[in-house]
Amino acid sequence: MRQKIDEETVAYVSKLSQLELTAEEKRAAAADMEECLTMMDILSGLDTRDGEELLLYDNDQNVLREDERVGSDMADSLLRCAPLAEDGLIPVPKTV
């Protein structure tokens, strides 16, 4: 049985999702998450064993690419979307 969502869980999940939350947001998030998950917990009452076997049934056509180059000519314009790009490289603050 799931334990109630507390601020520790919120801290863990927000770290996983790389979301920095304000103190107010953290508090509200615990309550919101609890509400959402309670709504979702109703699923535990559904017997889904048959469903697991059905999971891959819809696999009629493989969609694959040939190993041929497709020029995109877009490298420059894509790099321009990164405002700090210089000399063709994208900078980030030093990684740990």
């Binding site: 559904l46 048959d50 469903g51």
Partner: peptide
């Protein structure tokens, strides 16, 4: 398992 995997299985049942 309890949430996502279960929801996928439930989705398959819904399609059936």
């Amino acid at each position: 398992d309890a949430y996502y995997k279960k929801a996928l299985a439930a989705q398959a049942l819904l399609r059936r």
